[in-house]
Computed example of a mutant assay.
Amino acid sequence: MSGIDFRLIKQLWLFLAVAEEEHFGRAAQRLGMSQPPLTEQIKVLEHSLKLQLFDRSRRGTRLSPAGAALLPAVRQFAGQLQQLERVVREVAAGHSGVLNIGAITSAMLETMPPFLDELRKRHPNLTVFIREIDSVDAIPYLETGELDLAFVRLEGEIGSGIATLPLAEDRLAVALPADHRLASLTRIKFNALEGEQWVMPARQVSPVYFDMLTSACRTHGFAPRVLHEVRSVTSQIAYVSCGQGIALIPASMRKLVPENVVIRPLREKLMVVTAAVAWNTQRHHPMVDVAISLLKTHQVSPGVKAV
């Protein structure tokens, strides 16, 4: 294994500052150094890579096409370095372990708070880092080790050593503008929603959930007219509030709706697992085992598929 080029790491860090500030002077100030050595280090980096990373003019400093292509990977690398630094500091401070958890918004609101409270009671020296993700991001993050646990919507055979455990299920209900023609009903038949404009969770965010909802529509004799695809349940509610359509959401989300939105249950009982936890069985982490054991005490009924 070849040695780590620490000089290159430093130069990439400097490159990131200049790229984000679009000005050598401001970047130098941000880095706590003078401008001449920063300029020199960028020139050395360009020479070693045989690339021009910036276009310099009187108007300022702009990324070249090569610099723009390099920037996303450097940003990702910088984020990983910062995460590593946080973990090292926590371990050095005597903390017993670190868990990196990703979660969709609804899981952060409903499922995770009681779980985290109990976990911290049992392991007060555990450090937990949480980041908001989309369900579709869970598998690659778990495979690379960026996450230890993911609270998301997943279903079926995942493969690649990824295990899932359903945690919470809920009945689907309809979110409607308060002045909608169906708002006066206490329960709504599914086929009464034909012809409505729909606000749906984006398929690229949670493919299985999107497909399940559209399949339910087809089962009841129509294809949904999807006006908006959004990233979360809270976004669905917001769009309904703005008169942009109706939405199927978990009934428990009624506490998030504003006054101009009403939640009405469907006559048909359509259940959805609102959260499942996923982890990588090929990456052993003792605190993951502890977390899964704790979560199993709150597992939903066996056989329910996570979506």
Rank of each mutant, 00 (worst) to 15 (best):
Ile9Trp: 00
Leu51Tyr: 02
Ala238Ser: 14
Tyr209Lys: 13
Val262Met: 03
Val300Leu: 01
His228Thr: 07
Ala173Trp: 12
Arg58Asn: 11
Gln52Lys: 14
Thr111Cys: 12
Glu194His: 08
Ala73Leu: 04
Val233Lys: 09
Lys296Met: 03
Ala178His: 08
Ser96Phe: 01
Ala276Val: 08
Arg267Ala: 03
Ala175Gln: 10
Thr281Ala: 04
Leu51Met: 13
Arg267Phe: 01
Pro286Cys: 05
Pro65Met: 06
His220Arg: 11
Leu109His: 10
Glu229Val: 02
Thr61Trp: 07
Leu227Val: 10
Pro201Ala: 14
Ala78Cys: 01
Arg153Val: 02
Val18His: 01
Thr234His: 08
Leu182Ser: 05
Lys121Gly: 10
Ile246Thr: 02
Val230Gly: 14
Ser232Leu: 03
Ala168His: 00
Gln35Asp: 05
Ser57Phe: 03
Gln204Phe: 13
Leu167Glu: 11
Ala223Gly: 06
Leu176Asp: 05
His47Gln: 13
Arg225Lys: 14
Leu81His: 01
Val257Phe: 00
Ser96Ile: 09
Gly159Thr: 07
Ile188Asn: 11
Pro37His: 06
Leu84Met: 09
Val233Cys: 12
Val300Thr: 14
Pro265Arg: 12
Phe15His: 10
Ala28Pro: 02
Val233Ala: 14
Pro140Asp: 11
Val199Gln: 14
Ala68Leu: 15
Leu266Lys: 01
Gly156Val: 07
Glu146Arg: 15
His285Ser: 12
Thr219Arg: 15
Arg203Gly: 10
Glu20Ile: 04
Leu49Thr: 08
Ser206Leu: 10
Thr297Leu: 04
Trp198Ile: 15
Leu38Val: 00
Arg30Pro: 01
Glu22Met: 10
Glu20His: 06
Glu118Phe: 04
Ile188Phe: 11
Met253Ser: 14
Ala168Asp: 00
Glu268Val: 06
Phe6Lys: 13
Val307Met: 01
Val290His: 08
Arg86Glu: 06
Leu213Glu: 03
Ser252Glu: 07
Asn100Pro: 00
Ala28Thr: 04
Ile263Ser: 06
Leu49Glu: 01
Thr105Tyr: 08
Leu167Asp: 09
Gln83Ala: 01
Ser293Asp: 12
Gln29Tyr: 02
Met108Asp: 06
Gly145Tyr: 09
Glu118Asn: 11
Gln41Cys: 09
Met212Gly: 08
Glu229Ser: 14
Ser160Met: 11
Ala202Thr: 04
Arg181Val: 14
Phe129Asp: 13
Ala183Tyr: 07
Phe190Arg: 08
Arg187Pro: 03
Ala78Leu: 01
Arg153Pro: 04
Ile292Gly: 00
Glu132His: 15
Met253Arg: 05
Leu167His: 05
Thr281Arg: 12
Met271Asp: 10
Val226Leu: 03
Pro36Lys: 05
Glu21His: 05
Ala275Asn: 13
Trp13Lys: 15
Ala278Thr: 05
His95Val: 02
Leu256Asn: 10
Leu53Pro: 07
Ile249Val: 06
Leu248Asp: 00
His298Glu: 06
Cys217Asn: 10
Arg264Glu: 01
Val257Lys: 07
Arg181Ala: 15
Gly67Asn: 13
Leu270Lys: 10
Thr274Phe: 04
Asp170Phe: 02
Ala238Ile: 00
Gly25Val: 08
Phe222Trp: 10
Val199Pro: 14
Thr274Glu: 07
Asn280Val: 03
Ala183Pro: 11
Ala276Pro: 05
Met33Ala: 08
Thr105Asp: 15
